[in-house]
Design a protein around this nucleic acid. Structure first.
Length: 477
RNA sequence: CGGGGUGUAGCGCAGUUGGCAAGCGCACCGCGUUUGGGACGCGGGGGUCGGCGGUUCAAGUCCGCCCACCCCGACCA
């Protein structure tokens, strides 16, 4: 905890981000470059993300399992695009128990290969399908440039891996998960993501095609916040995952994979945070309500604390924290919990005891008043309503910010200007050459091709040929 | 891996042309006074000055090599 002010977001956004993460005690740097320690407050936030996703997976028939972290090197080599995509960033174990290993083992960068290997053993009949397995795991990718939560050498995520009898079922699964991710982001995290198809150059190594949810951060850069891949039969063929159909014909399965990682914590921070620090959406906040008792002496303390205890039990259905530290002043606590993003603060002092009320302060101030007096009667309901209001206000604010920073360029010059400080929604012919030239010119990349496409797209912003899609193009993390 | 930069207490820094006992702010510990928007006083603990080698009566300071980290590019959930 520090008393110094944070850097302003519009002056140094990345420094603001780094400091918020560390000062709010979400995470800290580990001794190995690019690795981070997720601290209890950050992990609690991640656990709430996990709970929101896990419940939705299970409600749609998925089950959890755990596969090993070490994968034989030869497995990676079985799928050509996959190994080409991941080879540069693999961590490889060559020594075990002091002995040189017969075959090097890869620390999983993702688990398609080892899961494919196991599915080949488990799937024999159309009656075994579909297989709908998810795992919560850590993976390692040796990235060049790392940022806390956004890109670390080791990160935590869930990876779903499913196998189906037909292309159609696999595609439905891929899209179903994309919907789940979208709903979770919007409903629980209040992050207004845009779902869509990735271009071929942006798709997952080894996929037929990939979908993603794209979110706009507070500096208008895009963050890919979740992906869902239709792997076709690529991995089925590489790992011989075959089954007999009802007509006794041998068929390859169709597989999917999909993931949301601890990067999503970064999305929450950068979607909602302000110059005072974190702002957490109530549905995911580790602490939804913080209670600050205020007193000057023992006499006042003995008046205030019983009321605090009463409030605590009244609010037992919420995630409540009592800050009873005596070594810091109330003013310090106000700033501290605001920096840490707690949605609602209740101040309880002698005046409140007198009035049978509490002073409530919202972290995010949408309207005019910051603080309001709440009567003790019916406190549970009032807090419930306030948290719901805050959740809704955060979403609306994020939507408004996003929409005010997406523009449709009329020509390439204007396009270049737009992507310096926002997203362009524009037409593209589908040619990767145009994508590459745009990236060269502006550092912006195609983020996604939204699912609802107009009949007429006009002409490609880059080459002027008839366009195939409307796409979002932006600079990304 | 290419270009640039930085290493002095947990964090941020000062330390002049080499020279007395390596300092300051924050944080931390103790005592007391405080407490409705980032309290204050007094006392205290904490350092192989990134590493190795060299020059010198004397190196945080000069020289050489190495290491680590950060920023910008290529790569990326």
């Amino acid at each position: 905890m520090s008393e110094e002010k944070l850097p302003k977001r519009n002056e140094n956004y990345s420094e603001w981000y780094n400091q918020v993460v560390q000062r709010a005690e979400l995470a800290d740097y580990a001794p190995v470059r690019g690795c981070m320690v997720i601290r209890p407050y950050g992990w609690a936030l991640w656990e709430n993300v996990q709970a929101g996703l896990d419940g939705r997976f299970k409600a749609t028939g998925h089950v959890n399992a755990a596969f090993p972290m070490l994968i034989p090197m030869s497995f990676l080599e079985k799928e050509k695009e996959h190994v080409e995509g991941f080879a540069p960033e693999l961590a490889i174990v060559t020594i075990g128990g002091g002995e040189q290993l017969e075959e090097p083992l890869v620390v999983r960068p993702t688990s398609e290969t080892i899961i494919g290997h196991m599915y080949a053993k488990w799937i024999k009949s159309y009656r075994d399908l579909p297989v709908l397995i998810n795992q919560w795991a850590n993976v390692v990718r040796w990235e060049m440039r790392t940022r806390l939560f956004l890109r670390t050498l080791e990160f935590y995520w869930q990876e779903g891996h499913t196998a189906h009898a037909t292309y159609k079922e696999a595609e439905e699964e891929t899209r179903k998960i994309l919907d789940i991710y979208t709903q979770f982001a919007i409903d629980d995290a209040a992050v207004p993501v845009i779902p869509g198809l990735k271009s071929d150059s942006e798709k997952f190594a080894g996929a037929l095609h990939s979908y993603s949810i794209e979110a706009m951060m507070g500096d208008t850069r895009a963050l890919q916040s979740g992906t869902s891949h239709n792997l076709g039969q690529n991995f089925a063929k590489a790992f011989d995952i075959q089954y007999l159909d009802a007509n006794n014909q041998l068929q390859y399965v169709w597989t999917t994979s999909w993931g949301v990682s601890t990067r999503f914590v970064g999305a929450i921070i950068m979607t909602h945070g302000d110059d005072q620090g974190l702002i957490l959406p109530p549905r995911l906040a580790p602490i939804q309500v913080v209670i600050i008792p205020i007193y000057r002496d023992e006499a006042e303390r003995s008046q205030v604390m019983p009321v605090v205890a009463h409030i605590q039990s009244e609010l037992s259905g919420f995630r409540v924290k009592l800050d009873d530290r005596s070594e810091v002043t109330p003013g310090f606590k106000f700033n501290d919990w605001e920096m840490r993003g707690v949605p609602l603060r209740l101040e309880v002092g002698p005046k409140d005891v007198q009035n049978r009320s509490v002073m409530a302060a919202r972290r995010h101030i949408s309207g005019k008043t910051g603080k309001s007096l709440l009567p003790l009667e019916g406190l549970h309901t009032q807090v419930k309503n306030l948290l719901a209001e805050i959740q809704a206000a955060l979403y609306e604010r994020a939507v408004a910010f996003r929409d005010s920073n997406i523009h449709e360029p009329r020509d390439y010059d204007q396009f270049k200007e737009i992507v310096q400080n926002g997203w362009a929604f524009t037409a593209w012919c589908g040619n990767p050459v145009c994508e590459a030239s745009i990236k060269q010119d502006t550092k912006a990349t195609t983020r996604c091709i939204p699912l609802d496409q107009p009949k007429e797209c006009g002409v490609c912003i880059s080459c002027g040929e008839p366009a195939k899609y409307k796409v979002y193009i932006a600079r990304a993390y």
